[in-house]
Simulated assay, not measured.
Amino acid sequence: MRLDHLFDVDWSYDLLHEVEPSPAGDGRFYGQGRATFRGRVSGHAQWSNFPRVRAGFALPHAHGVIHPDEGGVVLFSLTGMSSLTEGHGIHVMTFQTEVEPHSWLNDVIAVGEGTVDVERRMLEMRYYVAVAEVPLPPLGT
């Protein structure tokens, strides 16, 4: 697999509610926010997130809409895992749009990594297009 840079994103929460973890260890957040995208897709976004929280990790379950600078909308879904104690995270994103300049995103799986600032309610992430390189070499070579 090859990773090609897609965009950098600054995420910030405008609204955040928390249900503390139960004795079983699971809690929940609900948040809404905005983001700025810079790269092969540039623009701004609104989103909401309803992650599970356990043992210092958040498992995002976010959905939102990107408003590219060129116009139109791109819907997205985001999952992954973020360490709230270590301040870093990994994301996976998929997209859907009918806007021709960005319709190629419909066939993209993006992976991202970056920092999580719990106190400031912000994330700084870099995303890549995951490109399959096939045929794969035989295992063990």
Rank of each mutant, 00 (worst) to 15 (best):
92 V>K: 15
17 H>I: 08
107 D>C: 08
126 R>A: 11
78 L>R: 15
12 S>M: 06
134 V>M: 14
55 A>M: 10
40 R>A: 12
30 Y>R: 15
126 R>P: 00
75 L>A: 12
15 L>W: 06
115 T>V: 01
103 S>M: 14
22 S>V: 03
137 P>D: 04
52 R>S: 11
56 G>D: 07
53 V>D: 05
70 E>N: 05
26 D>M: 11
98 E>F: 05
97 T>N: 12
58 A>Y: 10
13 Y>K: 12
5 H>V: 00
9 V>R: 03
70 E>F: 04
64 G>L: 06
129 V>E: 14
64 G>W: 09
94 T>A: 10
16 L>R: 14
49 N>G: 07
28 R>G: 06
131 V>C: 02
95 F>I: 05
93 M>V: 07
140 G>Q: 01
131 V>M: 02
140 G>A: 01
64 G>T: 08
106 N>S: 09
137 P>L: 00
139 L>D: 09
88 H>C: 07
62 A>P: 01
77 S>W: 15
69 D>C: 01
26 D>F: 11
101 P>K: 11
80 G>F: 01
79 T>D: 14
88 H>L: 07
72 G>F: 09
136 L>Q: 07
14 D>F: 02
62 A>I: 01
65 V>M: 06
100 E>Y: 13
67 H>L: 12
112 G>E: 02
119 E>H: 03
69 D>K: 08
26 D>T: 12
84 L>H: 11
133 E>G: 02
31 G>S: 14
15 L>N: 04
41 V>F: 07
62 A>G: 10
13 Y>H: 10
9 V>W: 05
72 G>R: 06
9 V>Q: 09
97 T>E: 10
90 I>S: 11
